[in-house]
């Protein structure tokens, strides 16, 4: 919807530029084993769609600056100094790694050559998948944000800038290049009720379960200077209940054989997926354990009296909006 695209763009507020890459280490799964992963966030021009308009919940556009060739090369070199041969290297750019406007093609290759990782994980919108042909020799997992497989949700709730079929073509290319595909699905896009959010996630899983090696669920968290933040401040948006997340993970496990992950950003906080406050830690732990073990029993053992309130919301939220 062009009106929504215009609104999303108008509401953006850029802030001070950060020029240093961000680096950390974490555990991840590689062929069923838990291994070390090296995470690198490169500062680039960022997501072209965010500049043109942008997704309503996404605040990553603030983490970017107009990095030129030399800047990016310098960032890669800086990062490499800290690299300790972790098996997995994840490179995020607050945009699409494969977009040459963000990272010139030869720097993309420069990075793969430099880090001796068993597996790279990069992120990209579907528009840039053709560039994968340059990287035949590397084991790469491409993480593609789909958010929802429902075109109405994509257009009217997220302002994603593509339709499911555009995305699917990109995803199929990833597979035809012999690369692994990780799919990001959003939990509770704005304007959806908690119940619709569950429907939306499961519908999306059905649509992509034969393509994805990994499905990574992202419960919406409130990024600053976004349309969703404005809504949240007016109490018109609440990040999903953790019970919603649990429900989606359980039901996804029943219908999907690949790896299911969920990193709950700002979990337990007002700005992230949360429950009543009393049970959040327990529930978040269960989700974390499930992500690492894929054992659905981890999700069964949590309970709290606030579940009743969540069940109420599932029933009545639709009526509250009119």
């Amino acid at each position: 919807m062009k009106e929504l695209e215009k609104f999303a763009k108008e509401k953006k507020e850029y802030r001070k530029k950060v020029k240093k890459p961000r680096i950390w280490r974490e555990k991840d799964l590689l062929d069923g084993k838990v291994v070390n992963a090296f995470v690198l966030i490169l500062r680039t021009k960022g997501c072209y769609w965010a500049k043109k308009s942008g997704c309503l919940m996404c605040g990553y556009y603030k983490e970017t600056y107009d990095a030129e060739y030399e800047d990016i090369k310098r960032q890669i070199d800086m990062a490499y100094k800290e690299y300790k041969n972790e098996e997995i290297v994840k490179i995020f750019t607050s945009g699409s790694f494969l977009d040459e406007q963000e990272i010139p093609k030869d720097l993309q290759l420069y990075l793969f050559k430099k880090f001796k990782a068993k597996k790279f994980i990069i992120e990209s919108r579907p528009e840039f998948i053709d560039n994968l042909e340059n990287f035949k020799d590397y084991r790469i997992e491409v993480a593609m944000g789909l958010e929802s497989a429902n075109d109405v949700v994509l257009e009217y709730c997220i302002n994603k800038g593509f339709k499911f079929n555009d995305w699917k073509k990109g995803a199929e290319k990833v597979i035809s290049f012999g690369k692994e595909l990780k799919v990001y699905l959003l939990i509770k896009p704005p304007f959806l009720t908690e119940k619709q959010a569950i429907m939306d996630a499961l519908y999306s899983v059905e649509k992509i379960k034969d393509l994805a090696n990994t499905i990574s669920f992202n419960p919406v968290s409130i990024h600053s200077k976004t349309v969703v933040e404005m809504m949240w401040r007016k109490k018109l948006y609440r990040p999903p209940w953790l019970w919603t997340v649990i429900d989606i993970l359980k039901k996804t496990k029943e219908i999907y054989n690949g790896v299911i992950k969920c990193d709950v950003v700002a979990g337990g906080k007002e700005r992230g997926s949360h429950n009543c406050g009393k049970c959040d830690k327990k529930v978040l732990n269960a989700i974390k354990e499930f992500s690492l073990t894929q054992d659905e029993k981890k999700l069964e053992k949590v309970d709290c009296e606030c579940k009743e309130e969540w069940l109420d919301i599932l029933e009545i939220e639709r009526f509250l909006k009119g």
Binding site: M1, E3, F7, Y156, C157, F191, M230, K321, G322
Partner: peptide, 23 residues
Amino acid sequence: IIPASLIYPYFFPEEIHQKAFEM
């Protein structure tokens, strides 16, 4: 039956509400 609708926040611009109305 109350028809299912997409309702945007009141503070959104009028033209977005117009779209929602049309849908």
